[in-house]
Amino acid sequence: MDFTNVLPVDCISKIISLTSPKDACRSASVSSVFKTAEDSDNVWERFLPRDYEDMIAQSSLSQSFISSLNKKQIFFHLCDHPVLLNDGEMSLGIEKESGKKCCMLGAKGLTIVWGDTRAYWQWISLPDSRFNEVAKLNYVWWLDIKGRLNANNVLSPGTLYTAFFVYRLEGEHSMRERFVEMSVINSEGSLSGSHRRIILDPNSTNSMMRKRQRVGYKREDGWMEVEIADLFIDEHCDGGEGFTEFRLWETNGYIKDGLIVEGFEFRPKRL
């Protein structure tokens, strides 16, 4: 018996809503009944983060534009166009496969030593960045970049995340054959993943150094990223204070240049 001819569309929508966004999209190809059920607001309301309306309210999206979209369209808009919050210091979006929130704290939301000194750092606009400005390193001897995120309030509960440093290397930079230090620390003061040494330039040829350290790689969007650490957002967190601090530094004294910083990104871990 074809149960799609027996069950009402609302019941099928309820079943689909208990799966995942990825499986829901696949179900639409089963039949026209499934397609109608999959398009239901009841399905996509469940996949959207509980605070998606707050995300939209804090963004620059117009109410007239949002009111013209159904829940499925809102879901994919937030996947493809993360909203900018806190005067452009942070972006918040959704991962397509899981519906979990993704977050990036941009360069403007970081504490960069000498970042306000034009001789050492410049703030520039790039067409392929989600932020209005990114930080370009002219040169420093002392590289130290820190960030702080209320992870419990921003990220999805009950989710394992991976933190990434997102950057670009420009021209004859000084990062080849060298590493930088990185760490992520939670509010209790314990490391969320061990303190690591990272190679930002994937073209470094020192095989022993590459074997011991994590190496950055180029993404499809043209930026580079390197994995820092994993952190778990507790299922029972109340959205209150749960700060995560992250840091990148290199203070051994050689001149560092050619680095462009977009920010630190937190995405659900792919298992």
Rank of each mutant, 00 (worst) to 15 (best):
Y52M: 05
I124G: 01
G242W: 12
E53G: 10
V30H: 08
L48T: 09
Y120E: 02
F232E: 02
R212G: 06
L69H: 00
L137P: 03
V215K: 07
D39M: 14
D87G: 05
L137T: 07
F3H: 01
V215D: 01
S98D: 02
E95K: 14
F65M: 11
D10Q: 05
E95M: 14
D144W: 05
C102A: 00
P127M: 09
N86I: 15
F164P: 01
D2I: 04
R168N: 14
V113N: 06
L200T: 09
G99T: 11
M90Q: 10
Q122S: 15
I16N: 01
K71P: 05
G99N: 04
R214D: 03
H236A: 07
S62R: 14
T251D: 08
I228G: 00
D23A: 06
D234K: 15
C11G: 00
F164Y: 15
H81F: 14
E89G: 13
N132E: 13
T251M: 10
R214A: 08
I74N: 11
D39Q: 13
F165C: 03
D41L: 08
I255P: 03
L259V: 15
N186M: 05
S62N: 12
T162S: 12
P202M: 14
N252S: 15
W123E: 02
I228Q: 00
L169H: 09
D54A: 13
V261W: 01
E45M: 11
G242Y: 13
L191K: 01
A163E: 06
G189M: 05
L7K: 05
S31L: 11
R270T: 02
V166C: 02
V6Y: 04
F165N: 04
S192I: 10
W223F: 08
L18N: 06
K256V: 06
E177S: 01
S32R: 15
P268G: 10
R168E: 13
G88W: 11
S98N: 06
K108L: 09
G158M: 07
R26A: 07
V215T: 04
N203G: 06
S156N: 08
N186Q: 09
S59Q: 14
I145P: 03
S125D: 08
G147P: 01
P82L: 07
S98G: 04
G242H: 12
W114F: 14
S62A: 14
Y161G: 00
L149W: 07
E170Y: 11
L110C: 11
L143Y: 03
E181K: 09
I56T: 03
S20G: 07
K72H: 06
D116P: 13
D2Y: 11
K211F: 14
T159H: 10
L18H: 12
R210P: 03
D23E: 05
L191F: 02
L259W: 12
T162I: 15
S183P: 00
R148Y: 01
D2K: 10
D230A: 03
R46I: 10
M1V: 14
I94V: 12
C102F: 01
T205I: 13
L69C: 11
D230T: 07
Y52T: 04
D41N: 15
I12C: 02
L85D: 03
V166H: 01
R50V: 07
P21T: 11
M104F: 01
R219P: 00
R219L: 07
L200D: 03
N203Y: 10
E235V: 09
R212W: 13
I185F: 00
Y254S: 09
D10V: 02
I260Q: 05
I74G: 05
A135D: 12
E245S: 09
